[in-house]
Nucleic acid binder design. Structure first.
Length: 365
DNA sequence: CGGATTTGACCGGCGC
DNA sequence: GCGCCGGTCAAATCCG
């Protein structure tokens, strides 16, 4: 993986909501492109596989299919089922507007959507643009790559997870001052759900959490069911992680570790809903995610692009929300006191719920 | 004693 | 082919 491309990409999008710069990561080098070209300059190139983050605020994305995207989000419980869901309906009006707008909307109302670009898209882009893509965009993918969802979470959000996670590794990541922690679901032995947690280099208060795999069991009924087994290492046993500011038992595993007392919230402790195989409808993701990015990394041999359009061209709306934006939503909510659905359990606003609501999905998001 | 965390080692993918 | 890097394993350790 590479050089924290995801972090930079996401963080960049998050912290510069109204910025016109694009972050391009290639070979570990990050280039901030001022006043990017309306077409491809908004791309965030990554050297990880052939996936790219694409800021559709500019350019035309109408060619893309997004049903697969919605499926993924739904599988991660970021979207609730909707009877009819035309491709475009997965993108809330605000996002749609953002996509069509030639210039970024005001920071407080802007919802920046990032999309992943597949090799096919790259090809298309190359054909339609004079902006050369980096030669480092590879066409091959790592063996074990699978659907992966990357989110930026605030402190509080990490407390909103009911899944039980067990830490199984920690690694310093090149280019990041903070180590990355690896967790797997501990609720069930066979559960393949995993997540990675690391602090955002740009903002230590923000945690970048990546989810992969799927839960093969129902969500624990009681989020604290295993809390008794969680340790509060941060205070008792300082570790490299702790020294490097990584929250102690990030694992937090289980639910609500009392970590909030002395530690900065376990980085991972609580995770939003991770993919669940057996219809988990109650899984509510942390609703105040700062950023959400779905990274479609097919584990199948999908080099044969063209079989299924959704596989090769996946539109992934990545809502980039800064705290300011959230505040903006809050103000918006106050203005429209009836829009309680935008309010999350901790009074923050969920871009996703907002999106769903804005899309007119009556479906209980 | 059971379960979670720590941490060094190991493995595989990828770039050069 | 080699080295780097990220991801995972597993023994040791800790804690309730």
């Amino acid at each position: 993986m590479a050089d924290g491309w995801d972090l930079h990409a996401v963080v960049s999008g998050c912290t510069t909501a109204a910025s016109t710069s694009a972050t391009i990561n290639v070979n570990g080098q990050t280039n901030n492109v001022e006043d990017p070209l309306p077409d491809l300059a908004s791309l965030t190139f990554t050297n990880d596989d052939d996936t790219l983050f694409y800021n559709p605020g500019f350019g035309d994305s109408s060619d893309f299919e997004c049903e697969g995207l919605e499926e993924i989000y739904r599988s991660f419980n970021f979207l609730k089922p909707r009877p009819n869901n035309p491709c475009t309906s997965s993108i809330p009006p605000t996002q749609q507007e953002a996509q069509s707008l030639p210039s970024p909307p005001p920071p407080q109302t802007m919802v920046q959507v990032q999309q992943l670009i597949t090799p096919q898209l790259i090809k298309n882009s190359r054909a339609g643009s004079s902006l050369p893509l980096p030669a480092t965009v590879r066409s091959r993918r790592r063996k074990n790559q699978q659907t992966k969802l990357v989110r930026q979470m605030s402190h509080e959000e990490l407390l909103g997870d009911s899944w039980a996670w067990r830490k199984y590794g920690q690694k310093p990541i090149k280019g990041s001052p903070y180590p990355r922690n690896y967790y797997r679901c501990s609720t069930s032995k066979g559960c393949g759900a995993r997540k990675q947690v690391e602090k955002s280099p740009a903002d230590p208060d923000i945690y970048v959490v990546s989810y992969s795999g799927e839960h093969t069991h129902p969500r624990p009924t009681h989020r604290n069911s295993l809390a008794g087994t969680t340790r509060a290492k941060f205070s008792s046993r300082p570790t490299a992680a702790g020294a490097s500011s990584e929250p102690p038992s990030a694992a937090g595993t289980v639910a609500n570790p009392p970590c909030s007392s002395s530690s900065p919230v376990s980085a991972s402790s609580l995770s939003p809903s991770t993919p669940l195989i057996e219809g988990e409808s109650s899984a509510a993701p942390p609703e105040n995610s700062l950023t959400e990015t779905i990274e479609i990394l097919d584990d199948e041999e999908d080099d044969e692009m063209g079989e299924t359009e959704c596989d090769e061209v996946v539109l992934i709306p990545n809502t980039v929300m800064s705290e300011d934006i959230l505040k903006g939503f809050e103000e918006l909510r106050r203005a429209n006191s009836g829009s309680t659905r935008f309010q999350t359990r901790d009074n923050s606003l969920s871009p996703w719920n907002f999106s769903a609501a804005a899309a007119g999905d009556g479906g209980g998001c």
